[in-house]
């Protein structure tokens, strides 16, 4: 693994992560497509990379008053068992199969990202919880 290019990938991943446009995918794509790192190794590397980056970004967002704490508890009640199940499944499946599933997931997210208009972040507004829109 070329450490210079890895550092550059980490740098751009940090930029994208803090801008909310999918930093995890930058590093995952670099590792899996350009260095041919096995899928699960790339996943573990990406998850571990994300931890301090997220902690740093979260600290800055919290300082700016952008953190909304009310949905976190119910979200974690759903998220923790789901993360356990997903990680256990990933640990048991072969790399090639996870890579295919990831490719499908990536395509869906990519298409959605292309057709979604994003508002700029950065202002110091309070967390506003509005009723979900009826569809």
């Amino acid at each position: 693994m070329n450490l210079i290019f890895l550092g550059i990938a980490g740098f751009f991943s940090g930029i994208c992560a803090s801008m909310g446009i999918g930093g995890g995918f930058v590093l995952m794509l670099y590792l899996t497509l350009l260095t041919e790192t096995p899928q699960k190794e790339a996943q573990l590397f990406n998850l571990c990379f994300f931890l301090p980056i997220a902690a740093f970004s979260l600290w800055r967002h919290r300082k700016n008053g952008l953190l909304c704490t009310s949905p976190i508890k119910p979200a974690l009640f759903g998220g923790i068992p789901a993360a356990l199940a997903g990680a256990l499944l990933a640990a048991c499946l072969p790399n090639a199969q996870i890579a295919k599933l990831f490719a499908v997931f990536l395509a869906i997210i990519g298409v959605k990202t292309v057709f979604t208009k994003r508002e700029p972040n950065g202002s110091k507004e309070e967390c506003v919880v509005r009723p979900p829109q009826k569809q």
Partner: peptide, 13 residues
Amino acid sequence: GLANGLFGAGGGL
């Protein structure tokens, strides 16, 4: 959680 656990990326988005 499922996306994060299964793919290691994409959960945030």
